[in-house]
Design a protein around this nucleic acid. Sequence first.
DNA 1: CGGAAAATTGAGTACTCTCAACCAGCGTGG
DNA 2: CCACGCTGGTTGAGAGTACTCAATTTTCCG
Lengths: 252, 252
Amino acid sequence: MKSGWGTEVAVLSYQLLFAPLIKRWERYSPLSDDDKQAVLALSCQPRSFGRDAYLVRDGEPAVNCHLLLTGHGFRQKLVKSGARQIISIHLPGEFVDLQNLFFDVGDHNVQCCNRSDVAVIPKAALIQIAAERPSVARAMWLDTLIDASISREWVVNVGRRDAKTRIAHLLCELVTRARNAGQTRNDSCEFPMTQEQIADATGLTPVHTNRTLQTLRRDGLISLSSSKLTVLDWERLSEHGDFSERYLHHAG
Amino acid sequence: MKSGWGTEVAVLSYQLLFAPLIKRWERYSPLSDDDKQAVLALSCQPRSFGRDAYLVRDGEPAVNCHLLLTGHGFRQKLVKSGARQIISIHLPGEFVDLQNLFFDVGDHNVQCCNRSDVAVIPKAALIQIAAERPSVARAMWLDTLIDASISREWVVNVGRRDAKTRIAHLLCELVTRARNAGQTRNDSCEFPMTQEQIADATGLTPVHTNRTLQTLRRDGLISLSSSKLTVLDWERLSEHGDFSERYLHHAG
DNA sequence: CGGAAAATTGAGTACTCTCAACCAGCGTGG
DNA sequence: CCACGCTGGTTGAGAGTACTCAATTTTCCG
């Protein structure tokens, strides 16, 4: 578990680590064998990051993009008062900052949630592959469009839903995305967020988040502990969370 | 003012009406004369829409994209309780729904703010021009990336700022975008939003929005009436609103 | 000039926050 | 092996920002 790239990752071929990415992109856009080979051949630096490590900082030059190979990530912004708002959560297999592709400096912070292996890919390489391969470009663009759609739903979530609905909605989203990525088992998935992070993602305080999670547990909707979330009653949870997965635009 | 396409618009050439769009896109990406001609030659249907008219509806097929030639637009989603969250505001010269380019059905509603002239462009035509002209594709992609960046800032705004800061921030954003588009005169710009719409954009109630606007006026920060916003003290307004324009990614 | 929409005001309420203390799990080190 | 300390989770009590309801005034158009 503590070993870095020296052991498990170096042994695994990139093909394996990029497989989830290619699988997702193929849903968006038909990729030829050449396209896939080009993606696999992307110049890229594998690196390990620890809990809460920063991948990109608000206001600093963004020269690379980061693909999560293992572990979760999140993005956040700080406001004047010092409060933090988490803007998005990312599952293994996702890019955390593809939206920076054409921006010279990042407009927010990107962090690892837990210990993660990350493929650090120079933006220039991605821009080049996008220029040369329209199908890949389309897939990348779609990644950013879905990311944007999720942001819009988050605006709605923090703007117009009460605490219980808000947290239920967040959990529904994350379980659905994990399911779509093949990362669930019997309505359970890995869930590395602390209650403080859930609070910062929903615009609540940690204390109120704690109490609200308790009511969700008491109602028999979820079970959440030690980095594992289990949905006990999807029907009622999604109803409570005012959740519809349309905005995730999961084709197929 | 009441005349539709029969008079002023028909007289003006598309070149004039598309000028703001091309000007913006040229900031993002170098466009050749051919590129510009191709944009001007886009198959497109001019239409007039009235106040609050729907351009796209949540859950319905999205076959066209809409470019605002005159007038403002906004996008919104409804939640279970019936409340409405406005997701973004759009100035004349902007696309309101370029994010739907690769989505078959819209995931939210798009409306005109006031009486607007809109270029209705088939998505197929935009997809084609993007496929044939990488520079144009890049400009379009950047439009969607900036749109996404604004959504992220809105998550922060409604999630972690108090009412006064929240409204001040919204006003700062809109004035800055209007200024960037050449639509201000002495720190004044057109501002067609009702207080109810400001409330729905900031996640507040109309009553509280009203009281908060009064304090902004009383503090001598703004003057706002009859569709016109004037910033009386930009320094203090942007300070109050915790506003930094970096997220708008306005190059040049 | 009339009616509807928008803006404004008042009073009472409540959801969520703040502050502060306490508990539990777990990795570290003596 | 167990004490220690840190982080994360839990609980209690009191406060406050923003909400609700409802009435009234003003503005905007036709």
